[in-house]
Amino acid sequence: MFGPGSLVLAAFVVLVGVLAVVVATHVSRSPLKPGTVDRFARRQRLTITDANATHVVAALLVTHRWRRAGLVWGLAMGVLWSLRSSALTLHLIAGLLGWFAGAVIAEWRIGRLDTPGARRAATLERRTVTRYLTVEALALAGITATALVALLLASGARTGTSGAWWGWVAYTGALVVTCALTAGAVMRRPSGFVDSDVRHADDALRTHALGVLVGSAIAASYPALTGFALLAAHPDGAPTSATAPWALLIMVAALLSGVWVAVWAPSARGRRLSTGTVEATQPVHAVPAGRCDLSAPSGQSEPPPS
């Protein structure tokens, strides 16, 4: 009934699946490195204190675990997808989308870690996008959105509404909706912490989350940008993206812009603080170990993704 080829393929699929589970479980249970917390604190100009260390580590651990698990799952799904054409290929885009999905899930789950006491405090500052994102980040997001809309319209006008075109429209819509809903959830997350250090940490985590979210959305927009551009350039049938140097250029530009916004760009919080008093950051290893467990989240239990 089944030939030897089918059995080998099935065994390979099972092997990839098991390997993905093992690797995803391993990376999702790995502890945070102190350097990760220090980098976060330096970039967000946050003073890590006894009061906020637990909160910061718990939140970073959730993002760290879900993003890594998403990356592994994305790559595994990409490999399985490539088997359809009897080839074994590591898809960058699958890994990126998996990482993005992990980042989105993590932001929704971080809200569950907030367990303030009975006494509540609230800041009177409005939580808006401009509070958490710099002008440069917003400009890059705007340029990407404009380019997407322009290419969508241009390709639609040239090729008509083909199946491929609708596919990229769905991809773009899903990306925008996911990004908008998650950004809204990050900003709406309650912040009733009485301790000012924890409030500062919460502000830093929101700024970090929105930077990563927008950066990864810019990076994840490259397949749609190149897809629409190829449809517009070749209405009679697009060649593979590798044959067009400008498609590669779009990919590199989107990826670099996204990584810059997510990782390297100055943070909006840092810029806000630079107009006022800037507190010196304290390395996380200066916080007593009992206050800062780099392997276990506090508050409500957060099971690692697997």
């Binding site: 303030p116 509540r120 405090a121 800041t123 009177l124 409005r126 939580r127 709406r188 309650p190 009733g192």
Partner: peptide, 14 residues
């Protein structure tokens, strides 16, 4: 000065 939205202040103060 713009006060926070009703929703934001209500959520923060539970």
């Amino acid at each position: 000065f713009r006060l926070p939205t009703i929703r934001q202040l209500a959520a923060d103060l539970a």
